[in-house]
Amino acid sequence: MSEMNNMTAAESAATKAAVMNQVPGPDVEGQSPLHHADFAGLAKRGMQEGGIHLRELALLGHLTLRCDSSNHEQVACVAAILGVSLPLTPLTSAEKGAYSIRWMSPDEWLILVPGLEAFSIESQFRDAMPGHYSLVNSSGGSTVLMLSGDNAVELLKKSTTVDWHLSEFPVGKVVSTLFAKSTATIRRTGDQCFELVIRRSFADYIWLWIQDASLEYGLVIKA
């Protein structure tokens, strides 16, 4: 593409200045956007059977990568760092172990990693990634909900306009869409199991929405 893609190693290394570890030390407790809801307590005290199961995957590392999918060096570099290749087909995802990548747009991917590994992976990108790209740690801006159970699809049907039939929405497919009018990136991880990446500032609203929407099915909180 442009000459911006031909940064020298020294120029690439200079971009490391933008990276810092966002996770505070062990003396500071990390609190997810749904900390106040006390999922751990609700899991013990609340309903133990129901059609909707909800769990928060709190404090993961969220990395937004933008690069050129036709740049083979960049694509190979991502695979080398994460051990899994960028999903280049629209609306697909890939995962290996604790690392997962979602296609967000033709030049954008959302990578989720364990929270404590985010800084290390960011640093590896700064060291190794060639050419013009952007990697932003957006961990603090969103959180992840796992929605499962026999009525998970019914709840999604109430909340979105997406076709959730398995023939249209197979396991591994990912869409960015509106969930109860707030933005969400939803991935199917099993026949009845879905992962929602939601905005931090909408987390409480979506928590209230899910409680209301699952009244008729029964809501089981998992810690």
């Binding site: 629209p90 609306l91 509106l178």
Partner: peptide, 12 residues
């Protein structure tokens, strides 16, 4: 044409 599928107007 980027996502290669139909979506509702509210997303646009």
């Amino acid at each position: 044409p980027h996502c290669a599928e139909y979506r509702e107007e509210e997303e646009f």
